[in-house]
Design a protein around this nucleic acid. Sequence first.
DNA 1: TTGTACGCGTTATCAA
DNA 2: TTGATAACGCGTACAA
Lengths: 339, 339
Amino acid sequence: MPAGPTSRPTLHDVAREARVGVMTVSRVVNGKQSVRPETAARVRTAIATLGYQPNDAARSLKGQRSRTMGLVIADITNPFYAGCAKAIEEVARAHGYAVILCDSDEQVEIERQQVDILVRRRVDGLLLVPTANGHAYLAEEQVAALPVIALDRPIPGIPTDAVVVQNRRGAREATEHLIGHGHRRIAYIGAGAGLYTTRERRAGYREALKAAGLAEISRLDAADSATAARALRELAALSEPPTAIFAMNNLITIGVLQALDHLGLRVPHDVALIGFDDFEIAALLHPRLTLVRQPAAELGRRAAELLFERLDGRSSKPVQRVVLATELIVRESCGCRHE
Amino acid sequence: MPAGPTSRPTLHDVAREARVGVMTVSRVVNGKQSVRPETAARVRTAIATLGYQPNDAARSLKGQRSRTMGLVIADITNPFYAGCAKAIEEVARAHGYAVILCDSDEQVEIERQQVDILVRRRVDGLLLVPTANGHAYLAEEQVAALPVIALDRPIPGIPTDAVVVQNRRGAREATEHLIGHGHRRIAYIGAGAGLYTTRERRAGYREALKAAGLAEISRLDAADSATAARALRELAALSEPPTAIFAMNNLITIGVLQALDHLGLRVPHDVALIGFDDFEIAALLHPRLTLVRQPAAELGRRAAELLFERLDGRSSKPVQRVVLATELIVRESCGCRHE
DNA sequence: TTGTACGCGTTATCAA
DNA sequence: TTGATAACGCGTACAA
């Protein structure tokens, strides 16, 4: 009776069973070099008999790659990041790689701890959704030797490959769409300048306003649905309340909807609304929500592929930034009649 | 200039730098055995100077644990599973463990491939949301004494620890609630008997009907929102259409809502609805959705803790099944007036 | 085509 | 308290 995972058959066991040398077994397992078919068959039988599985820890130790990548993500329960993660895992598996999942919960101390763990595991590369600040540790020499791809947001102060979406353009188009509906008082509800995505989206909103000669109405103190709801209530209480809202992400969109519901304000009749980041049920709400869609799977896929490019030796290229297009999904909450 | 992740400083490098033996460094790193404070300080300086990080692959090879667990999940983009994953990662990290994420996409061939990969990595244990069938291969791993905890569903034909929710009871309570509203024709929309959760939920639905002397109206051909929508349209076309719907999961709930919307049927006025599995925006829909909530984070947490119990040596215990309570979140779609 | 010997970075064992 | 040495399982380099 085996005592534990450690008591698995090794190359030697298989070799003894098949009455060959260990290298013959190794060659059969890896299929790189030629082995006499007859011998190979005997080896394969022995492998099946013993239930042999190669030990990747030993392979990795031998100086090979660990065939593992680290994924440090801000919040896996955010459907957007979950979509990224799924695509990443698929690409990784297709390359024979495993993905170690780390959820930083948007906290840089956790993120740092997780990167440490990943370095100790000798992951071949890192996919990182960086928190707002404190990434100096990434510049340290030992960590710096590790290929890092930033996901969704560039890493503040650290030049690495990055895959992001057109936050600014997406926000500008959404705002322009509201302007096209004749709105003159369009409010932005979101967080402050901490995050790249936040800054970019607000910048896009402002660009559109400026081009139309309109004044900015921003609430930058909304981080989740509850604070977004409060921000909306305060905006609604103004003497000249906004007639349209641009919500910075899906949490804020939800909070805004809740608050509008409580206030008895109807969308788009009383207030028009466009949010950033699509979610599955948005097409089911009344009214159907007009949203800026981000290509989550594509983002994950491209990031993983970029990492493999680096790993495959094309590492001398300068740092790349891949920018993926967003798409304005026009439904009803903007004031359009749809379908 | 380091050439890559392989050129990291080792224990020997630190030992040379600190002018001590490798074992002294090892002892300082692990802090288990006593080292003279003076020596320890010198070692720590050397570690900092060189930026040394232990190599977990080597540790794992030496027969220690790999401090890694595998998570094979059916679909990370399902918010329910994402909630599980987040909790699992937290518990794992608290124990110094890393989590390798595998998304089987509900396909047993992929699942099997992933388990293979995890075995090769010598993970210390496995958390698995098993697909419907074909788990004979796992019996082999059991022989090899790899601890496996089933998540959300037991593994067909393989006795392992499992953490599940009260599917049957949750479904029964939901159905009873609809009966309490006076409904006599209550339809079940879901998939067939492939999955444990499916079977249990339908069983609960049937228990409630039987106790009330009502006839079953089941559609077992709905696997996603599109097929659920079709099933609902067909039910609505009956001469005596159901007056209430129990939807087996959140995808089906969404499909049902879409179909009702298209048909111009209002909830709960024309048809009452209760779904299994809560989702964030359910409280925002019109009407607010009454749902059976599953404790996703708790499920993940308990599963991870169960695994650590096994790893900590309390492995002689018989197989456990942890059953967590569901909760009927009463809002409006059932016919109740809420708030 | 096949086998032998060594080293990867770490820890356990034993000796000093 | 410390250090030298032998594994752990595999792949590379060489020899047969």
